[in-house]
């Protein structure tokens, strides 16, 4: 219990730094996720239609996923240095596969009868996509985004190892000083963010799901 009191005291004393680290952390998460969504949702729409695209990109992204984030972080160093960019790249690579795989599956699993009905009633390609396919795929795409989001929130702590900031700074500092209280100042907000993201995205997903 005492360690939490200490952590709270440390947090209030270093409110400015904590706030900055939190913003930095969120910025890393937002960048990685934003790029992930912008790249993978359109890509997933394509891979769901093309056998070639699906074989190429899904395998490529799955391969990337096997490489540990920390390794990617250090691989990016020679090119981007100890920077926000290096961390953002590593996190983006982590964020890509779940979004791509879910988007691909979401469009692939749309009942062909529904697609045929849309065409047969005289909907054009764009109408079919925006009025029928996309709304039906959305909950599954969101599930992919949720997985990515939670992974990225937790992994963004690694950015501190290359000096890119974020809440990981407190965790690194705490472990170097063998001070659990400082470590918790970083770890607790990360855990809370991850839980909030999980809960928030789940309810959004539920709200958009087709009623059963």
């Amino acid at each position: 219990m005492e360690v939490f009191v200490e952590a709270f005291a440390y947090a209030t004393e270093n409110m400015g730094e904590l706030w900055n680290a939190l913003l930095r952390h969120l910025l890393l998460v937002a960048t990685a996720l934003g790029v992930g969504v912008a790249v993978c949702v359109p890509l997933g729409v394509w891979t769901a239609r093309s056998r070639f695209a699906s074989a190429t990109f899904i395998n490529l992204f799955n391969t990337l996923r096997v490489i540990p984030s920390l390794a990617i972080l250090f691989l990016a160093l020679p090119y981007f240095g100890l920077s926000f960019e290096s961390a953002a790249i590593a996190l983006t690579i982590l964020a890509l596969p779940p979004i791509l795989i879910n988007t691909d599956a979401a469009f692939r699993n749309i009942n062909p009868a529904v697609r045929e009905a849309a065409r047969g009633m005289g909907m054009g390609g764009l109408d079919t996509f925006w009025q029928v396919e996309f709304p039906l795929a959305l909950p599954v795409i969101l599930a992919g985004i949720r997985t990515s989001l939670v992974e990225v929130i937790a992994s963004a702590t690694l950015a501190a190892f290359i000096g890119a900031g974020g809440l990981g700074d407190f965790i690194v500092l705490g472990s170097q000083l063998r001070n659990e209280a400082i470590l918790l100042v970083g770890a607790i907000p990360v855990a809370i963010m991850a839980v909030l993201a999980e809960v928030g995205m789940s309810s959004l997903q539920k709200a958009l799901e087709v009623p059963a």
Binding site: A113, V114, A117, A118, G120, M121, G122, G124, V132, L136
Partner: peptide
């Protein structure tokens, strides 16, 4: 698309849009 809008089309699995209400389906 004009041709199809002028022809009623009914299929086996109904092909109703599951995310739309009955009214929205009929309104397509």
């Amino acid at each position: 698309t004009t041709l199809r809008q002028r022809i009623g089309y009914v299929i086996q699995q109904t092909g109703l849009f599951p995310h739309m209400t009955v009214a929205q389906n009929v309104a397509v």
